[in-house]
Design a protein around this nucleic acid. Structure first.
Lengths: 192, 192
DNA sequence: TGGCTTCCATACACTACTGTATGGTCGGTG
DNA sequence: CACCGACCATACAGTAGTGTATGGAAGCCA
């Protein structure tokens, strides 16, 4: 677990991990330094201060979970197929089930707020565009995008908070995958 | 704003307010004491320590937003009407839009976790029961309850994080109420 | 080998917050 | 009116975390 040299990326990843476990206030320099097997001296070599670490972690999250994801999906021509891949993939990644709710909970934080609003807007816009390509008129496409994104983020939230008691939410097992597929179906085709 | 005597309930309400603004770690005795216009001496008269305040706040939340709400809804005989009232009412209360995501974000907290799981289970069970009374078979009713609750909690989350940029999410105005009614319709009737 | 760079350890000052101990104030009550 | 209990202020100790200053180790490169 402890290495000779801890990179800036190592610090950022550790911050994202702490973020998903206990929110922004759990991103503590001394805690992370112990977890990485170094002292805080390493941190203040790579970063200006604690806020810079939080910013870096949030930007990394935005890059991986929004920018790069959208770029990859753009290679899928069929909008229905694209939506299906997006939703099933987003619901599958277990690492996000705690991270995203933790970020949302600090929406009032001056560091978190702008990033979160940017990410939300880009995702909803992207969803609305896909629904429009499926034939929905603009207003309906936008409503459907909001419902779909709300269901997605709520599903993650549920799984992070009460996944243990609700076997249908589990990310593995027969019932879990069936429920996820069911949800993805509903979100792609919309309600009757 | 400042009163002669600050009651235990005043402390609890202030804690809930702080909770919704900045999460569990924002429930600080000294901050709340300044906000209430007293010193921390008042707090340590009413409460054993800080954790006792957090517990009291979470129990108050559980009581008002789950126990009492369910009791009131039980007076509505028709399950469809009951569902509609529940959803529209739950989506209307603006005070919850930040509180519930903030609580969920601390699901790993040993104080928050048990309360949250209890609340989630009771709500999902109650929803599943209503859907079963609407004619759904048990497994489908349960799946529908999960989807509905995920959409509900995700909707609150969206509104708390990006409500300003997404006019459809606003709790007031033409588009906001229309979108909420649209969502409630979908959740009551289910997808085609 | 000497020196330069990179990375980290150590020690310290500082701040924010919790908890405790104790005394003061004010309204009610015998 | 004397006092008692509820409520709060004040002052202090203790702790956890941030940021800073400085020295030291280890590797590359002449």
């Amino acid at each position: 677990m402890s290495r000779a040299h801890v990179s800036r990326a190592d610090w950022t990843n550790a911050a994202l991990e702490a973020l998903s476990e206990g929110g922004v206030s759990a991103v503590r320099v001394d805690v992370l330094s112990k977890r990485l097997g170094v002292t805080r001296g390493s941190f203040y070599w790579h970063f200006e201060n604690r806020e810079a670490l939080v910013v870096a972690a949030l930007e990394e999250w935005e890059r991986v979970c929004t920018t790069e994801t959208i770029e990859q999906l753009d290679s899928i021509a069929d909008p229905e197929q694209r939506l299906r891949v997006l939703l099933t993939q987003a619901l599958d990644v277990e690492a996000l089930s705690r991270l995203e709710p933790a970020i949302v909970a600090h929406a009032t934080d001056p560091v978190v707020g702008p990033v979160l609003r940017r990410v939300t807007r880009r995702r909803v816009d992207y969803l609305a565009e896909a629904y429009a390509q499926l034939g929905h008129p603009p207003a309906a496409a936008r409503r459907q995008a909001l419902v779909a994104y709300a269901a997605y983020t709520g599903w993650l939230q549920l799984r992070s908070s009460a996944g243990a008691e609700l076997p249908e939410l589990a990310d593995q097992g027969r019932r879990g995958t069936a429920a996820r597929r069911h949800l993805a179906d509903e979100l792609v085709h919309g309600p009757g």
